[in-house]
């Protein structure tokens, strides 16, 4: 029952089959093998949240996920949750509220916030803070990120 030499899963809504050895990390597969570079590598050790993707809809650290375990599952990256034209409500709110400065943490926050608002369309401020408490931002002090998520939540009424 050794690792499959081709890994099959749904990536951003499309089925894919890619060569993948057992020890491949999902973040490496996405960024290096599949050139999906929107997902960022900030620490490689679960300590920053820059690498957040959705696995079966749940925000997950791709740097601590074995790619092989994605067999048969679905993975959505920032590329996948961005509409083909324009921006999603969360993305628009991040731009308008200045919630992105250097932007390196931003894909992770957007993925986390998107899942939050999908499951809890009207989160309290405390719920927002808790939801983003695994994503590190060194630029914004989080203030405008929280404001942006609050505003996106209002918009999706």
């Amino acid at each position: 029952m050794s690792s499959p030499d081709r890994l099959r899963f749904r990536l951003n809504g499309q089925p894919v089959a890619v060569p993948c050895e057992g020890a491949r990390i999902l973040l490496d597969l996405l960024r290096e093998d599949l050139s999906l570079t929107g997902t960022k590598r900030g620490c490689d050790l679960g300590t920053c949240g820059c690498c957040t993707v959705l696995v079966d809809g749940r925000p997950t650290l791709s740097c601590l996920t074995l790619a092989a375990l994605m067999e048969g599952r679905s993975v959505d990256t920032i590329e996948g949750i961005s509409p083909p034209q324009g921006l999603s409500p969360v993305q628009r709110a991040f731009v308008e509220h200045g919630a992105t400065q250097c932007g390196f943490c931003t894909p992770g926050f957007v993925v986390t916030a998107t899942a939050l608002l999908r499951d809890h369309p009207h989160p309290s401020r405390e719920e927002i803070v808790r939801a983003i408490s695994g994503n590190l931002c060194r630029c914004t002090g989080y203030t405008k990120i929280i404001e942006a998520i609050e505003s996106a939540a209002r918009e999706t009424v």
Partner: peptide, 15 residues
């Protein structure tokens, strides 16, 4: 709003 904001929030900004 930052001019490159749309690129950053979609993961399209190139680092």
């Amino acid at each position: 709003p930052y001019v490159e904001g749309p690129l950053k929030v979609t993961g399209r900004a190139e680092y």
